[in-house]
Amino acid sequence: MSNTLLYNRKELRALLKPYEQKNNILALGLCLTDYLLLLIGEYLVVTLPLILKPFASFIVFIAIVRLFVLGHDACHGALTSSKKLNQWLGRLVFLPSMTTFHGWAVGHNMTHHGFTNLASKKDMWLPLSPEDYQALNSYEQLCYRIYRNSVGVTAYYLFEVWWKYLYFPSPKIVGIDAAKRFLPDSALVTCFMLIWISSLYAIALLTNQTFIPLLLLGIVFPFLAWNMTGSFLIYIQHTHPKVRWYQDQQAWIDSHPHVTATVHIRFPQWISSIIHHVMEHNAHHMDMNIPCYNLRAAQHQLEKKLSSNIVIQDFSWKWFSECTHICKLYDYNSYQWLPFEK
């Protein structure tokens, strides 16, 4: 992969400008469809026999993932042409994944997009240098090792992102003022969750069913599955043996991080459609104002111009296993991934 870009950021943004076009009817249709999918899933969780309920639970999980991606777009102001509508829709579609709109705007829009793969800003999935790893206590080292394992990857988002930053962020982590600003959205997602749980409880009483299986299959398992999926997807979007991380800000700026700090993971078309093309990630980092329904075309256009600068990876479990095997610690001087033990 070359670090020399033939086009600067402005030129590339101009190239992608046509894909910023919003389709409000389509956006609203997608939101309605995915909420309908969630309701169908919940209906099936209630009505199907116990042995088939996991299938319904899977539908709820898929709906949460899809709604989250729409919320992600709305939070960028990319889903519809109206700023107010994006703010309301974003809050609404974020609810099933218990994501706070304001928390996501700060953590994702600003920290992640502003400083992708820059160590000093503590971006998600930040790899530690051997020295930083040695400085951790035993518990923190264990957690780090688990997160860098091909199975443990799925645990990172729930504990390190959602719990710490996206639900009720601690004033110790984000500061008192910021924590106060996050409160209304934190209260909103909590109210929604309480209503969701209460509704399932009422339905369990009305239909003479045990509440716990409904709670687990209707809410808990889909929510955990979403967190695991989110963790996995964010990991593969920015972690790859060929993708660099930086400590030095000037080196990071010179690397054109908007293009080079991101991997285009190619999934089969049907999977890409299910997750609203969220893995067409270089185009998204180049221009966050492109809605998910235009992202495939935008990524295609970008790759026509910058094929030598973009890391493209066809997804396979074999590759993923190799990636997690290689990407443990990071040498920020030589830009090399290192194993835990030499």
Partner: peptide, 21 residues
């Protein structure tokens, strides 16, 4: 606070289409 400073910085980057230290 630091989060607000990050917000200003990233919004400035977006406004100017330039990476800012």
């Amino acid at each position: 606070d630091s989060i607000s400073l990050v917000a200003v910085l990233t919004c400035l980057m977006d406004m100017t289409d330039t990476y800012l230290p």
